[in-house]
């Protein structure tokens, strides 16, 4: 599973990265998590509100930090 956390480095972005890491650990799945901080790359995903969570090239979350449980639900889909 390819997971990307998009964000220019604000507080919410690192919160989302942490929550995602925790969700992956709790689900015990193999995933490649990458933090994307470069603004040009963030724009390539068509995201205008950070932070955003991309799973397998699909925008799952943008502009907010969901709870660990909510992220787990998103990853299960």
């Amino acid at each position: 599973m390819e997971i990307k956390v998009l964000g220019t480095g604000c507080k919410k972005c690192s919160q989302l990265a942490e929550a995602t890491l925790k969700a992956v650990e709790e689900l015990n799945i193999v995933a490649n998590i990458e933090k994307v901080e470069d603004i040009q790359r963030i724009m390539e995903y068509g995201v205008m509100t950070t932070p955003a969570l991309i799973v397998n090239n699909e925008i799952k979350v943008k502009g907010k930090v969901p709870s660990v449980n909510e992220i787990k639900e998103l990853l299960k889909q």
């Binding site: 604000c10 919410k12 972005c13 205008m48 509100t49």
Partner: peptide, 11 residues
């Protein structure tokens, strides 16, 4: 949120 000002501006 003002931390999204740049991506919003670009968009």
């Amino acid at each position: 949120c003002s931390c999204s000002a740049i991506p919003l501006f670009l968009g």
